[in-house]
Amino acid sequence: MKITDLILKIYTVFFLAVIYLPIAILIFFSFNESRSKIVFTGFTLENYYSLISNYAVWDSFYNSIWTAIVVTVVSVFLGIMISYGVTRYEFKGKNMLDILMLIPIIIPEIVEALTLLVFLIILGIRLSPYTVIIGHIAFDISFAYIVIKARMAGYDPQFEEAARTLGANEIQTFTKVTLPILMPGIVSAALIAFLQSYDDFIKTFFTRPPGFTTLPVYIWNMASRRGFALDLNALATFIVVISIVFAYVRLKVERW
């Protein structure tokens, strides 16, 4: 069995290497000076200068951030309410609700996007950054709900009873005990919700007004042209760094 174990190990390492390969190549070519773009001819920071001075990137970055913040705040707030209600109380249709809450995660985004677009068209609602936000919240509530609910499952209701026997009223109990104990779950949910929104392309693409560009939409606009745009590679470097920071922060929060 030793030999098969070794083969498995080598294969896994190879697999991981392949997964990282496109990202590594993106970053590698971000330092390429060549006009031919696909053949590496020399090191330069030119692509980074051109990225930094690119107004469209900054504009779409700004749009991504502010919409994602609004989406995160609303969906985490609603997610906390639902998951708290579901874990704490018994009521009819609870199992049904639990399944319905999963659907926005399972359904492919293109379907969500097209149905929402038809809905907006029929109701005569003009596309705006707010229609994008509305669409994002619709799937982010589910993400927030699932993460927070998982955290609440391990939460002892006796914490709250203990606080009350010690003289805390409902509001003090919630602010001093419930909320701080659930905070890691909430932060984790907020991170995921933020990332889902910030990283979303398809739903944004369908429900955005003309001219409203988020970072993924910008990337799409650049990438869907046939050639290569090396300032996109430079952008990729930043995004990879941000992503790794995100992944790391999430790990820290999970262990909190």
């Binding site: 006796q158 009873e161 203990a162 009350r164 026997t165 010690l166 005990v177 701080p180 104990i181």
Partner: peptide
Amino acid sequence: LPTHKRNIGMVFQTLALFPH
């Protein structure tokens, strides 16, 4: 009278010590 207005102390089965 609600719990927080009664002058009682309680030690719970799970102890319910605040983890934070």
